[in-house]
């Protein structure tokens, strides 16, 4: 063989070895990613759950299978977040006086029709249908599929940003863009300020990272709410208290349960029929 060809061959092998070693090194995730991903994966894949000993008996457990159930999360230092576990949410204007039931799942104090728009989860993606409004500035006729970062407009004044922050979950988040958005309510509450809406699929993440559905920038750890057996469970990485009792790892949430941990606290409340 000519020395030239040999030289070329050796060269390519050397470069290949270098590439392999670089690739191996780059596949290591950062520790935080590892932790949150393993937490999430254990939530998704684990077969048996460890039951908590101090399961609270005071509050009725939140059942997610009943239609029209909405869960409010009152989170200290963060805000009031609405969790919609259903497959679809209908937005509408305020309830007309004289009607006993609202015609929409979420009533916004804005100039909207009674049933103005609907967002529906279909597998991994979301379908949006509105009577009057646009997506990213362009009018929508009929239905459209939403993608991460879309700006949804309902009527003249209401704007929401649609996001799917976590790659591991199909849950979506609707938030006001920069300005505030109208007060809203579900069922027959009084209208209140809501800081965001989570359309929960299997999982809702609360925490400091960019993949959290409910951003809590000052928290040191991430808390996971997940659906299991049509109940809402909470899972924390560190120690936490559930209604003043110590909680290990995971526990179902009841209506009115207060969960608190190292530097955070929130309360879950059911609103619905």
């Amino acid at each position: 063989m000519r020395p030239v060809v040999l030289f070329l061959w050796v060269q390519s092998v050397g470069v290949q070895a270098l590439a392999c070693s670089l690739k191996a090194e780059l596949q290591h995730s950062t520790p935080q990613n590892l932790v949150s991903r393993s937490c999430l994966s254990s939530v998704m894949l684990e077969g048996r759950w460890r039951r908590t000993m101090n399961h609270t008996l005071h509050n009725r457990e939140i059942a997610l299978d009943q239609p029209g159930t909405t869960v409010l999360l009152w989170i200290d230092g963060v805000g009031c977040w609405m969790l919609c576990p259903g497959e679809s949410v209908i937005f509408g204007g305020p309830v007309e006086p004289g009607s006993s039931r609202p015609s929409a799942d979420l009533c916004l104090m804005a100039n909207l029709r009674r049933q103005h728009a609907r967002i529906e989860r279909m597998g991994e993606s979301y379908r949006w249908k509105t009577v009057e409004g646009d997506v990213n500035g362009r009018t929508v006729r009929g239905e459209t599929f939403l993608s991460d970062g879309d700006l949804l407009t309902l009527g003249p004044n209401v704007q929401m940003r649609f996001r799917q922050p976590s790659v591991l979950s199909a849950s979506a988040v609707l938030r006001p863009d920069n300005r505030t958005w109208p007060r809203m309510f579900a069922a027959m509450q009084t209208p209140g300020s809501v800081d965001g809406i989570v359309l929960m699929d299997e999982v809702c993440l609360l925490g400091p990272g960019a993949d959290a559905h409910v951003p809590c920038p000052d928290w040191a750890e991430q808390v996971i709410l997940h659906r299991r057996d049509e109940k809402l469970w909470v899972r924390t990485p560190g120690r936490a208290q559930l209604d003043s009792r110590a909680m290990t790892d995971a526990s179902p949430l009841g209506d009115g349960t207060v969960v608190s941990g190292d530097g955070w606290r929130f309360r879950a409340e059911v609103v619905g029929d």
């Binding site: 200290d76 009031c80 208290q241 608190s260 530097g263 606290r265 309360r267």
Partner: peptide, 28 residues
Amino acid sequence: GREWETMKFTFAPESRPLEGYTIKRAIY
């Protein structure tokens, strides 16, 4: 009975320190 850091806020959700008002969450 808590061993870890004290809660930041004095009042818990659903407290009613004042008549006619129900605390829902802390702001800051």
